[in-house]
Nucleic acid binder design. Structure first.
Lengths: 173, 173
DNA sequence: TATTGTTATACTCTATAACTATA
DNA sequence: TATAGTTATAGAGTATAACAATA
């Protein structure tokens, strides 16, 4: 079912360009994107599986780890954190309660709007976050086993990819 | 507390004694791997954030989607699914209860060991899984916006990377 | 005795809806 | 009236421990 070698896709594309068949070339490129995405997705699935374990190294749930990561910049309202986590604002109350209970986060009143509470990391929170980020920056074995040339290509291509990711809907807040 | 990074230091030092250039080259390659990993990790975080939305398109929780994906091959015991999901076996009972309640999965008794229950997808389950897998195969905008040359490089490098991922601890079951 | 799956319990994450205090 | 955050409630995911049936 899937044994077809796809290096021949290159030839198809070249032929399509020459004969001006844009539609065929487009399909070939879509197929190419799928082929590139497939192994990437496998790695992502593996990382999704491992992330709870990584967070647990710091006695954090996956969501707590994600939240800590997002709170590393300037103080932000609860609602902003809810946006980052793609969850309802009501959940952030309990989440922040627990982080605050552990002394990692503080609620501060915003002076421009007394409804708003700004979330800041405590010193302890900053320290945990620093170690967490350092740990997350460690590449998995699958990546670090690549050659220097492969790593350079991967880095350059992925940097271009995530540039495009930041562009369309992305307000960094 | 004082001997914390001793083993690592010893390795670096030993290499440095052999050849200072080799140690420096090693650090450079580690740094390169980190640089390649960083944008990859950003994409992974974004996909982790989006996965619940994708699963919800099929009225599945993230874990249910993951389980359905894992049950696409031959019938397997509950314990195997627990392994795939990296969770305790006790959780699989409720998870399978819900999937079975929706008619997507069946429990079957294994004849070789009457303690074991084998999980199989129903026809409805196979259909949902097929559509789910098709949806997951769609590359995100950040990837499909890359050029053909970039896609080819990405595909080839990532294929080599996940080959190495399958090798070390990987029993596919 | 050891293992497979279940049940009981507790905690976290998540959504919806109703509420408060501001604006 | 609308918005930011809270509370109440319900369902799902997760771990631990105790248990039944089977090996």
């Amino acid at each position: 079912m899937k044994g077809m070698s796809r290096t021949q896709g290159d030839r198809v594309e070249a032929r399509a360009r020459k004969s001006g068949e844009a539609a065929e070339s487009l399909r070939a490129e879509e197929e190419l994107a799928r082929e590139a995405w497939a192994p990437l997705f496998e790695l992502i699935q593996e990382q999704m599986r491992q992330f709870p374990v990584l967070a647990a190294e710091f006695e954090l749930s996956p969501v707590q780890a994600h939240a800590l990561r997002m709170l590393g910049y300037e103080p932000q309202p609860m609602s902003a954190l809810a946006g980052h986590l793609s969850c309802d604002a009501s959940n952030v109350t309990g989440l922040v309660d627990r982080l605050e209970g552990r002394g990692l986060v503080e609620r501060r009143n915003a002076e421009h709007d007394r409804r708003v509470k700004l979330l800041c990391l405590t010193e302890a929170g900053q320290e945990v976050r620093r170690r967490l980020m350092e740990r997350m920056a460690e590449p998995p074995a699958a990546i670090s086993a690549l050659s220097s040339a492969e790593l350079r290509m991967l880095r350059d291509v992925m940097r271009r990819a995530v540039e495009k990711l930041g562009a369309p809907g992305g307000k960094p807040d």
